[in-house]
Amino acid sequence: MWNYEKRLQFPVKITKTCPKTAQLIISQYGGPDGELSASMRYLAQRYTMPVKEVGGLLTDIGTEELAHMEMICAMVYQLTRDLTIEEAKTAGFDAYYVDHTKALWPQAAAGLPFSALEFTAKGDAITDLTEDLAAEQKARTVYDNLLRMITDPEVREPLKFLRTREIVHFQRFGEALEKTKDKLDSRNYYYYNPEFDKPAGFPEPPM
């Protein structure tokens, strides 16, 4: 189960209204490489993960991604908190405003709604961990792109924090993949699927 802690993982304090920036950053809420997608990906994959520590890591990173989603939402909220109708009309936020006013709704920067199609749980430890490594890199690229476009330091500091987290998570998923490989035969890692097949001599979960 989860408990709520009434604070952000990293402080977000944005004083300047900027609907255009909000419209870009919202991609990390509901976009293909966003924090919601990340959290759901890891929390979905953990149940069938054959190595116990890897399931634990997916739980912990999946939980941290929820805290990142909250940071992104706080940024979008603060960037549009004092929005006037004139700002909504002129600053590239008009289409979003029509459907959601100032509410937070998970969508990509280009307006596509959040979808579970943006991540997968494939049920094969090597496949899923390789997806997770790629997912962290994709999210890092989005943060790189945002940092290229956004100049307000109050927005950049939390974005830089989130970008570093992607790199740390990449390292941990790499170590998780090594732990999984340790349990398999290095002559052929693909001889069977440790999440489905139970060949003789393969340790029963939890490994």
Partner: peptide, 27 residues
């Protein structure tokens, strides 16, 4: 906390955009 990791070994900043900052950090 500022850097996003407790490990100096994992801190890989994105230097390319540092010149884009509007003004010194006011946080």
């Amino acid at each position: 906390l500022t850097n996003g990791t407790v490990f100096p070994d994992l801190n890989k900043p994105f230097y390319v955009t540092d010149t884009l900052v509007d003004s010194p950090v006011t946080m």
